[in-house]
Each structure stands twice: as structure tokens, then as C-alpha cells.
Computed example of a mutant assay.
Amino acid sequence: MSDRIRIANDTLTVEVSSLGAEMQRLDTADGRAYLWNGDDRWWSGRSPILFPIVGKAPDDTIAINGKSYPMKQHGFARRSEFALMDSGADFCRHALTASETTLAAYPYAFSLVLEHRLDGATLTVTATVTNAGAEPMPYGIGFHPAFRWPLPGAENTPHLVTLDNGAEPQMVRLEGGLIAPDLLPSPFTAGTLALSPDLFEADALIFPEGAGKGLRFGPKDGAGLTFTFDNLPNIALWQKPGAPFLCVEPWHGMAARSDASAELTERPFTVALAAGDSAAYGFSVTVPV
């Protein structure tokens, strides 16, 4: 049975489940709910952590040094029970470590620590990966939080995604769940993308590089959510067409390329963490108050 822990301050309340260390609620003190509710008629996820891969592998199989291992989309962390390491009024920290089950799919000694921390109207989620083994450890990692679209108080109002850097990053699409080889023109104009469900009829919009370290999601006129990203160079936007949510997904790693092998090290933006080293990745979201 999974457990939930509640953290709060004067502005925000967050609930986190031990299953996947996944956030279940992000509410303001006055009752506005910003996180998607996980209605499985659309998508049962809310804010899964993606590890040790982001996206799909060919035939749900990765290869490591030529040996095949079973690996479902987005990896096993989101389906694993994390242990609560520490918590206080406004933070909690969960950990997943290598086990017989994980070693059968991913033959590396690792720890993955996920922290949720509140500071005023801002939630920061940080994932720290440690290589506890004796050889370099390849992996991908990412976040997959879903937010209500439209945002509370902005019903019947067009929503935008606006990049802090004002860029027009090129895009890739998925082909059978894998990254298609062609770079496509940017859907952004001077850093702004007007959102509509038809954008997602061919699945996620994926920006391998150039989307920058922050963005805003919300109505053109009025308060929105602001995001910053740390050590996460890839950004994806995803919605099941017509669903009442938008996923803002910062990653370090992507699905396998449709024209490449199943080798984990060949996946775009795979990390190779040295023995004994740790690396941190995170995002912050600030809620309008």
C-alpha cells in the first residue's frame, strides 16, 4: 500500500505518494488546484519521474553492451515504491535504490533521491542520481508534470507557452513512440506558442535543444505558471488531444531514435555518470497568488 505525505506553507499544499515519489496535489491556500487530477479516462499520471530512460525503447527493450533488458516506456521509477528519507513542514525527500528487481532490468547500483520543497508560491522538485557502482552508469532522467488546462480562473481563455529566451527552437516528433530523425520547423514565433489541441494530434512536441531554462504557461492576459529548469536541456509539451491538462516536461535524455539501435548509450542526451559521482536535475514552478 502506497503512503502519501502532505507538505504545506501559507501559500501552497502539496501531496506526494510513495509510489514513484509522485506529486498528487498542488493546491493554493484558497483552494485552487493546479495539478492534473489523474482521471484515467484521459491519463492516470499526475507528475511521474522518468528513470532510467525517458520515452520508449524499441520493443520495450534496451541494450547495454549488447545485452538486452526489458524496459517499459519512461523506465521503472514511476512504478516503484520509494522510501521516505526525511520530511518537514515544507519539504519531503524520497529515495529509490537498486534492488534485485531493478538489477534485472538495469544492471547498475544507483540511488535516486527525489525532493519536493516549498518556498512561498514556488515548488521545487529535485532529483539526485548517484552511481554507487564501479563503472560509468548511463541513464536518462526527466519530469512529466501535468497541469490543468485551462488553469483555474482562466476558463474559456486562450493559453500560451512563452519561452523566457524568446527562441524558436526546432522540433522533433515521435514515430511509433521513437524519435523520428528529421528536425522540423519551430511552432514558436518569437518565443510564443498559442496552444490548441490540434498541435498534439501527432503526439508530443519535443524540443531537443534551444528552448532555454524557463517558460510561462497560461492565458495571454492574466496570471500563469512560471517554470525554471536546472540541468534539463530537452523540453516536451504533451496533451492527449482535448484532455483538460498540459504536460510541461523537462528532460535530460530522450526516447530512442527510430533509426538507431536499442543501446542505451545511443539514445539522445544520455548521461554517463562516473563511478561514485552524483548529479542533480530539477524544476521549479511558481503559482500565481
Rank of each mutant, 00 (worst) to 15 (best):
M1T: 09
S2R: 11
D3M: 07
D3Y: 11
D3S: 13
R4W: 03
I5R: 14
A8G: 01
N9C: 05
N9W: 01
D10G: 01
L12I: 02
T13D: 15
V14N: 00
V16Y: 03
S17T: 13
S18L: 01
L19A: 14
A21P: 08
Q24R: 12
R25H: 14
R25Q: 12
G31M: 14
R32D: 12
L35Q: 07
W36F: 00
N37G: 11
N37Y: 01
G38E: 12
G38Q: 06
W42V: 01
W43F: 14
G45F: 04
R46K: 13
L50S: 04
F51Q: 02
F51M: 03
P52I: 00
G55F: 03
K56G: 14
D59V: 02
D60T: 10
T61W: 05
I62S: 12
A63F: 02
I64Y: 01
N65C: 01
N65V: 04
Q73D: 12
Q73G: 13
G75P: 08
F76P: 02
F76E: 05
R79E: 06
E81Q: 15
E81M: 11
A83K: 08
A83S: 06
L84D: 10
M85R: 15
A89Q: 06
D90P: 01
F91W: 02
R93K: 09
H94P: 03
A95L: 07
S99A: 12
T101E: 15
T101K: 09
A104P: 00
Y106V: 01
Y106L: 06
Y106S: 09
Y108L: 02
S111W: 05
L112C: 04
D119N: 13
A121P: 13
A121D: 08
L123G: 00
A127P: 03
A134K: 09
P136R: 10
P138I: 03
Y139C: 00
G140C: 12
I141A: 00
G142L: 08
F143E: 06
F143M: 04
H144R: 10
P145S: 06
W149V: 08
L151E: 00
P152S: 11
E155Y: 06
T157K: 07
T157A: 09
T162A: 11
N165K: 05
A167E: 04
A167K: 03
E168M: 11
E168V: 02
G176E: 11
G177P: 07
I179V: 14
D182I: 02
D182Q: 13
L183E: 13
L184A: 11
P187E: 07
F188A: 08
T192M: 07
L193G: 08
A194I: 13
A194F: 08
S196Q: 15
S196E: 13
P197M: 11
E201L: 14
E201G: 14
A202W: 09
D203W: 00
L205G: 09
I206T: 15
P208L: 10
K213N: 15
G218T: 05
G218W: 07
A223D: 09
A223F: 02
L225A: 04
N231A: 12
G242P: 05
A243N: 01
L246D: 04
E249R: 02
W251F: 11
G253K: 06
S258A: 15
A260C: 09
L264N: 05
P268E: 02
P268L: 09
A272M: 10
A274P: 12
G276N: 06
S278R: 10
S278A: 12
A280Y: 03
G282C: 01
T286G: 09
